[in-house]
């Protein structure tokens, strides 16, 4: 196939191959570690019988590649686990059981996903508005005081780790000024208004640092476009500066903005660990930190895969959108 559909298809196949490779690496790294895998998986408080049962369920006597195949099968068609007396069915996509919390890994992840998505998508709106707005403003007022001030502010934004921004915001807004209560997650379906107020600071925390990157990118791409010949032609035809900056130069910046945005949204679903931990939001990132601290291997492996899925998926979408936004891109 050629042209755009073929490109999209090839990109999708590439994404699946990448995901498979990530799953192999993750599986091998975590399940081929030295030490008693059954004991680690089951947790420190497991009795020898339970450990034995886990060892059987994980088929630890089989060679590694068979166990991986088994794991993969679970994701595609589901799996049955005997829990001694009864049989528990884990439907596809099954990422295994967490023996420490006695839950299916997929259920744990699905329970946390709405929180992470609320956080990331809300923050995305903010960082796009703030970041692209700042970038356009600096490109428009280039060479003036406004641009210099904005460049300074964005540099400070890039230089401050997000958890420091969050910490300061929380202390000033909630602690000193008492404008907002300390955030506490309320689900959207329970109370949309409270949902928003409680997520406001986490959104800002995530968005401020990110907006700085977008401002830099927007400004740089717009200035690069402004230096191109076709802009000079527009000027010669008497097109106004506002239209040149706002329409034509911004269009040139669109493709990289889309690419970076898709990339970051994917990475943030799991990567907002710091913001989630700081504000006590029960999202994917916080669950992963918890799983890491108690060495709950099935949850760690499952989470890395799900987060990897979001990153790979977002990158594929970014590539496709990039091609749509910028016709100059050669489709290979």
């Amino acid at each position: 196939m050629t042209g755009f559909p073929g490109f999209a298809l090839r990109r999708a196949v590439g994404a699946i191959v990448t995901l498979l490779a990530i799953s192999v690496i993750v599986y091998v790294v975590f399940y081929a570690t030295p030490g008693n895998v059954a004991q680690i998986t089951c947790g420190p408080r497991c009795s020898p019988e339970q450990v034995h049962q886990v060892a059987q369920q994980l088929k630890l006597d089989d060679p590694l590649y068979l166990r991986y195949w088994h794991f993969l099968q679970g994701i595609v068609v589901g799996q049955d686990y005997s829990t001694g007396t009864s049989v528990e069915h884990c439907s596809a996509p099954c990422l295994g059981l967490s023996y420490q919390s006695d839950q299916q890994v997929m259920q744990i992840i699905l329970g946390k996903l709405p929180v992470s998505l609320s956080l990331v998508l809300g923050a995305m709106v903010l960082w796009l508005l703030l970041g692209v707005g700042t970038g356009v403003l600096s490109a428009w007022r280039r060479g003036r005081l406004t641009e210099r001030a904005l460049t300074g502010v964005t540099l400070a934004g890039v230089a401050t780790p997000s958890f420091v921004i969050g910490l300061v915001l929380m202390i000033v807004v909630c602690g000193q000024l008492e404008l907002l209560p300390f955030p506490e997650y309320v689900s959207f379906s329970d109370d949309p208004e409270q949902w928003m107020w409680n997520l406001l600071l986490p959104w800002l925390t995530l968005a401020l640092g990110e907006a700085a990157y977008f401002a830099r990118l927007t400004r740089a791409s717009m200035l690069e476009t402004l230096a191109e010949d076709h802009i000079r032609t527009f000027r010669a035809y008497g097109v106004g500066e506002r239209s040149i900056v706002g329409r034509h130069a911004l269009r040139g910046a669109l493709a990289p903005i889309i690419a970076l945005n898709a990339n970051d949204v994917g990475a943030m679903v799991g990567g907002a660990v710091l913001t989630e931990t700081l504000f006590g939001l029960p999202g994917i990132g916080q669950e992963l930190v918890h799983a890491v601290n108690v060495v709950d291997l099935p949850v760690v492996v499952g989470m890395v895969l799900v987060i990897g899925f979001f990153v790979v998926f977002a990158n594929a979408v970014a590539d496709v959108l990039y091609a749509v936004a910028d016709r100059r891109v050669v489709l290979t």
Partner: peptide, 22 residues
């Protein structure tokens, strides 16, 4: 090239977190 692609696609913080655990 594919291996580099995969390394780029791996969520950095997450992998670091997970590796530090084991």
């Amino acid at each position: 090239s594919r291996i580099s692609d995969i390394i780029v696609a791996m969520p950095l913080m997450i992998m670091a977190l997970a590796l530090l655990a084991i």
